Structures are given as structure tokens and as C-alpha cells.
Simulated assay, not measured.
Amino acid sequence: MEVQGREAPSLAMILVNSFQLLYVMDALWNETAILTTMDIVHDGFGFMLTFGDLVWVPFVYSLQAFYLVNHPNELSWPVALAIIALNTVGYIIFRGANSQKNAFRRNPHDPKLAHLNIIPTATGKSLIVSGWWGFVRHPNYLGDLIMALAWSLPCGK
């Protein structure tokens, strides 16, 4: 705000920081689901996870806010509401898919998951082919990409 001579943050900055706060709060709230991810189960705590957590995520996820410090962008409320709606759609897909995947990994025989169709793999594991996973191969990534777009749109141009 000091760099831009503002008394309050811009609507664009508020959106970007709010979206990022939601993402961080979601990660903290659903922390146990991280323990069933491929990074933890198969790769373990190695270079990729260390580099990702200490360098990639903090640097890349803050680029929009950093950009807005030196390149302010004014948003109208209708545009802001459309961006909020886009982020909400992305979050619903992201959280729904990750929750479904986590529940299946924890207990594939849970009666709450009986409606899901699965196919066996050559390794003896099962893949979900319905629910969120019946629409697209990696719906969690689709949700992430939609949210990334919503985080970037307030930057304009």
C-alpha cells in the first residue's frame, strides 16, 4: 500500500490474498489427506518434496501478489464476482476430488464409496473411474488449474 500510495489494499490484492489464504487453510484443515499422497507414500521426504515445500510453492504461489505490488490493477465488482465464482468452482472440484481420492485410499471398502466404479490395475491396485474421476483423469489438477487462473486474473492485462 505504501508503494502505491494507498490507504487500503486494492480489490485485486484482496482477492489474490484471500484465495491464497483459503488454499493454505484448506491444506491445514485437510493435512491428514496429505499423508496418502504419492509424494509421501512412494517418494518419501526427498529432494522433490523438500524443494517443492521450501522453494517452489512459496515462490510460485506468491507471484501474483508480488506482481500486484508494482503493477496495481483496478477491478470492478462484476469482474471481481466473476473471478470469485471461478475460484469457487475450481475449489469445489479440487476439494471434492481430493476428498474422494483420500477417502478411497484410506478405506476402499467404505460403504460411503460403494457408488464409485473402479478398475483393477496390473499392480493389483484399483483406480476410481466414476465420481469426480469419471469426468477427467485428474480432476484435482483441473481444480488447481482453475484456481490458478482465478489467482492470476486479478493481475489483468
Rank of each mutant, 00 (worst) to 15 (best):
S10R: 11
I118N: 10
T36N: 05
L22E: 05
S152A: 15
F94S: 03
P111K: 11
A12G: 05
S10V: 06
I83A: 05
L15A: 07
V129H: 10
N102S: 15
I92Y: 10
A80K: 08
N107R: 13
Y91M: 12
Q4N: 12
D110K: 14
V136N: 07
V89K: 03
I40R: 08
Y91V: 10
N102W: 14
I118M: 13
V69R: 09
L127R: 15
F51T: 00
S76G: 11
C155H: 01
I128L: 06
W132Y: 15
Q4V: 03
L68M: 02
E2Q: 14
F45P: 01
Y67A: 08
W133H: 11
Y61W: 09
S126A: 14
G131W: 11
A150V: 03
L81V: 12
S99V: 08
F47Y: 15
A85E: 08
K101M: 07
A148I: 05
P58A: 09
L22K: 00
S130N: 12
L28K: 11
G90T: 03
N107Y: 11
R6D: 07
Q64H: 08
V129D: 08
N30D: 10
H115T: 09
E7G: 15
P9S: 05
D53R: 09
Y23L: 07
L81W: 15
L113M: 12
L127Y: 11
G46L: 02
A65V: 02
L75C: 05
K112S: 15
G134Y: 11
L81T: 10
I83Y: 02
I84D: 00
V89I: 15
A12M: 07
H71D: 07
T88R: 07
L35T: 11
T32W: 07
L22T: 00
D53Y: 06
W77K: 13
V57W: 00
L68V: 01
R95G: 01
P111S: 09
T123G: 01
G46D: 00
Y23R: 08
L142M: 11
K157I: 13
A122H: 13
T50H: 00
A150Q: 04
T37K: 05
V89L: 15
